Amino acid sequence: MSNSTTSSTVAANPSKIPGAPTHDYSPRHLGAMLLLALIWGLSIPVTKLGLQDLPPLTLTALRFAFAVPLMLLFTLGRQTLPWRALPKVAALGLLGIGIGQVAQTFGVAGTSASVGTIVSATIPLFIVVFAAIRLGQHVSRIQALGLLTAFAGIALVALGDMDAAAATSVTTMWGVGWMLLSSVAIAFYYVWSVELTNEHGTATVAAWSTTFGFLALLPWVGWEWTRAPTQFTGMGIGAAAYLGVFVTVAGLYMWLGLLRVVPARVAAAVQYLQPIFGIAAAAALLGDRLGPAFVVGSVLVLAGLGITLSRR
């Protein structure tokens, strides 16, 4: 959803921008949007399954071991990355993967899949905040109200889940904290990447930032292996493959392809279904029980998300 931070000039004159949405989209495109919401919505429950067999850093590194070769393949014949851009792109990868994705994996380990799904849905809210700070985009009073509503919902979800044990895990404050750190880091990654992708191309920046982030993880994975033996299982490898191939690579290119045809506001609205798919999967696959506090808190988060992005 990083394309929501494009300039007001682009928004005002979409017909003059190469690759702008044509508004000529079909039921097939709607189906693609629903499929993407399902793919991304399943990411937290699948991570939870993978963590049953693999430790957090190993699962994260294995995920990007699947993703990096495919992403580099997509850069063939595209814009090359100049040497002067390497430090910024490397730092972007460290932020997005070394902090954002690693924190998310630790957060999933410390929360139920349902709570992790809801807290991760705050990424677009933090994007609005950072876009206002870094890109000078205005935040209206109604959007500020949406932010406060969503964060009140997070508090209700987290505190309510701590009082009711889920079938497979209990939410902790540390887990929620890791998830919030992940949302902040990933949101800033998206906003910062706007500047770099405008200059060097989306596929190029995405591939090389992911590569640098993956390489930075490897020493920490070695350290993790010295602390506890790691046994690779079919479920652990399958979870990493799903996260790397479908969530990271296929999801990215599906999203970019849809934004060439479908207005961003329509694509974003369909992606509000992600938490619903994630919560349903958590209940079906992991047996998460959803109490009244969780339901009310989830409604507040989704309402806050809708209010905040209503003018974006």
Rank of each mutant, 00 (worst) to 15 (best):
P14M: 06
A240L: 03
T204N: 10
T105W: 00
T226C: 09
V170Q: 12
M71E: 01
Q143D: 07
A216M: 05
S310K: 02
K48V: 00
R63Q: 06
G291Y: 01
P45F: 09
S169I: 01
T168S: 09
V245M: 13
W223F: 14
Q274L: 08
Y272Q: 08
A109C: 14
S15E: 13
T172E: 05
H29V: 04
K48S: 07
A269S: 15
Y253P: 00
P14D: 06
H29S: 04
G291P: 00
W225L: 15
S209D: 02
T210N: 14
A158C: 15
G93E: 07
R260G: 10
P275M: 06
S15F: 07
L95T: 14
D161C: 04
T211Q: 08
G222V: 10
Q52A: 15
A85K: 04
S4C: 02
N3I: 03
G287F: 05
S8M: 00
G236S: 11
T111Y: 08
I133L: 15
R84S: 15
T122A: 11
F130L: 06
A131D: 05
F232R: 11
G251Y: 06
G238I: 09
G31Q: 12
F188H: 13
L259I: 10
L92Y: 10
V89E: 03
G306R: 13
T197V: 13
V296W: 09
A228C: 10
